[in-house]
Amino acid sequence: EQLARLKREFNENRYLTERRRQQLSSELGLNEAQIKIWFQNERA
């Protein structure tokens, strides 16, 4: 579920704002660094 949600977010926007990253962190139970790194890896 977390992965599917991250992929949906990535398809909508390849870059997250700090606020959006905080929201996802709270909703998915991941820390902000994990989300940031995931997005960086997807863009690579």
Rank of each mutant, 00 (worst) to 15 (best):
E1V: 07
E1G: 10
E1K: 07
E1S: 10
E1A: 10
E1I: 10
Q2H: 09
Q2I: 15
L3F: 06
L3D: 04
L3H: 07
A4M: 11
A4K: 08
R5G: 04
R5Q: 06
R5H: 05
R5I: 10
L6W: 00
L6I: 03
L6T: 02
L6S: 03
L6F: 01
L6V: 01
K7A: 07
K7L: 12
K7D: 02
K7R: 13
K7I: 10
K7P: 01
R8P: 00
R8K: 13
R8H: 11
R8S: 09
R8I: 10
R8Y: 08
R8W: 09
R8C: 10
R8F: 09
E9I: 06
F10I: 03
F10D: 02
N11Q: 14
N11L: 14
N11C: 15
N11E: 14
N11F: 11
N11G: 11
E12H: 11
E12G: 04
E12Q: 13
N13T: 04
N13Y: 07
N13K: 06
N13S: 08
N13I: 05
R14A: 10
R14E: 07
R14S: 11
R14M: 10
R14K: 11
R14V: 04
R14T: 05
Y15E: 11
L16V: 06
L16S: 02
L16T: 03
L16A: 02
L16D: 11
L16K: 02
L16G: 02
L16Q: 03
L16M: 05
L16H: 02
T17R: 06
T17Q: 03
T17K: 05
E18I: 13
E18F: 09
E18Y: 09
R19E: 15
R19T: 13
R19D: 13
R20C: 07
R20V: 07
R20K: 11
R20A: 08
R20D: 04
R20W: 05
R20Y: 09
R20S: 05
R21E: 05
R21K: 11
Q22S: 09
Q22R: 14
Q22T: 08
Q22E: 07
Q22D: 03
Q22F: 09
Q22V: 12
Q22C: 11
Q23G: 04
Q23F: 10
Q23D: 08
Q23I: 13
Q23P: 00
Q23T: 10
L24S: 01
L24A: 01
L24E: 01
L24M: 03
L24H: 01
S25P: 01
S25F: 05
S26K: 15
S26N: 12
S26P: 01
S26H: 13
S26M: 15
S26D: 11
S26Y: 14
S26L: 15
S26W: 14
S26E: 14
S26C: 13
E27F: 05
E27Q: 07
E27C: 10
L28T: 12
L28D: 00
L28V: 06
L28I: 12
G29N: 07
G29F: 03
G29K: 04
G29R: 03
L30S: 00
L30M: 14
L30T: 01
L30Q: 00
L30E: 00
L30R: 00
L30D: 01
N31P: 15
N31D: 15
N31Q: 11
N31R: 08
E32Y: 05
E32H: 03
E32R: 04
E32K: 05
A33L: 14
A33Y: 13
A33D: 15
A33N: 13
A33M: 14
Q34D: 14
Q34I: 15
Q34K: 06
I35Y: 01
I35M: 03
K36M: 15
K36G: 12
K36Q: 15
I37V: 09
I37A: 14
I37M: 12
I37E: 13
I37C: 14
I37Y: 09
I37Q: 13
I37F: 10
I37W: 14
I37N: 10
W38E: 00
W38K: 02
W38G: 00
F39Q: 01
F39T: 00
F39A: 00
F39E: 03
Q40L: 09
Q40I: 11
N41G: 04
N41H: 11
N41A: 10
N41I: 10
N41S: 07
N41T: 09
N41R: 12
E42G: 00
E42A: 13
E42N: 05
E42M: 14
E42T: 05
E42D: 03
R43H: 09
R43V: 11
R43S: 09
R43G: 06
R43T: 06
R43N: 13
A44Y: 10
A44C: 14
A44W: 11
A44T: 08
